[in-house]
């Protein structure tokens, strides 16, 4: 196979460019759906979990693909099948549970779901979601000015617990020093030297995760109360340490 299939070029571009990745997956949707359907033994719909899993497996295949793995689509098919098998194995364990909508009582006419004491306030949920979404959109806009997207940040996020905690320490330091945050907003650059010195975390570590730190520091600035509330665990630790 001397001539390289054009899809390979698209795959390599998609590895680093999330917009290209989105485009590639859109082009390959019929293929992905086909793989999921084949696995299920019936046509796969958007509602099926298997569809979501097949899609994310395709993304994983894009990330992990190298020419040594042979033709890309075959590799993608392999990855999709592997993930679907994993998923089914896990889900099988839950099959013993009864449905919430099973009838509670012959005479009663209620379902089990009706007998649950808790009730979710759907209206409040929708409101919170909307408020959160607004914060997220604002954050995304600011990040874009810095040339970063959430996708990039996810790729740049520390994987090891140890590193995550180190970065958390740097974030807490920044949160306690508003002038540092002001400097970030004013200069448009991450003050890594100050962060390293002040938090005691190695500069190299911070460098490696600069996009992640950028996002986390921005969240400490005005206007992201909900998101900060969500990250209470990261921020709380600092309070205990300084107590």
């Amino acid at each position: 196979m001397d001539k390289e299939h054009p899809i390979v070029e698209a795959v390599f571009a998609a590895k680093t460019d999330s917009a290209r990745a989105d485009g590639l997956i859109r082009d390959c949707l019929p293929f992905i759906r086909g793989q999921a359907s084949r696995f299920l033994g019936r046509p796969c719909t958007d509602q099926d979990d298997e569809y979501s899993i097949a899609m994310i497996a395709f993304h994983e295949a894009i990330q992990n693909y190298s020419r040594m793995r042979g033709p890309f689509l075959r590799y993608a098919a392999l990855t999709i099948r592997s993930r679907l098998i994993d998923y089914h194995r896990r889900e099988k364990r839950h099959k013993g549970q009864i449905s919430l909508f099973a009838p509670h009582d012959e005479e009663d006419g209620r379902t089990l779901a009706d007998t649950l004491p808790e009730e979710r306030d759907r209206f409040a949920e929708a409101e919170t979601r909307e408020a959160t979404r607004r914060e997220i959109e604002e954050l995304a806009t600011v990040l874009q000015r810095f040339g970063a997207s959430f996708s990039d940040i996810a790729d740049n996020c520390p994987r090891q617990q140890r590193t995550l905690e180190a970065c958390g320490q740097a974030v807490r330091y920044a949160a306690a020093h508003p002038d540092l945050l002001e400097e970030l907003l004013r200069t448009g650059r991450l003050p890594l030297a100050r962060l390293a010195e002040g938090s005691g975390i190695a500069r190299k570590t911070l460098e490696r995760h600069r996009r992640y730190l950028l996002a986390m520091l921005l969240i400490q600035t005005n206007g992201y109360e909900i998101i900060r509330g969500h990250l209470h665990r990261v921020l709380k630790r600092g309070e205990e340490a300084t107590a």
Binding site: S18, A21, D22, I25, R26, L29, I32, D49, S52, I53, M55, I56, F58, H59, I136, A140, S149, F150, S151, I153, A154, C157, P158, L164, C167, G168, V171, Y212, A215, M216, I227, H230, L231, H232, R233, V234
Partner: peptide, 22 residues
């Protein structure tokens, strides 16, 4: 945080940004 064809980006309570199935 964000939706893409085939995945979403989420933020967990410990500050991890992750990609997950949509």
């Amino acid at each position: 945080l964000e939706r893409h064809p085939g995945y979403v980006v989420v933020l967990d309570e410990e500050g991890r940004f992750l990609k997950a199935a949509d």
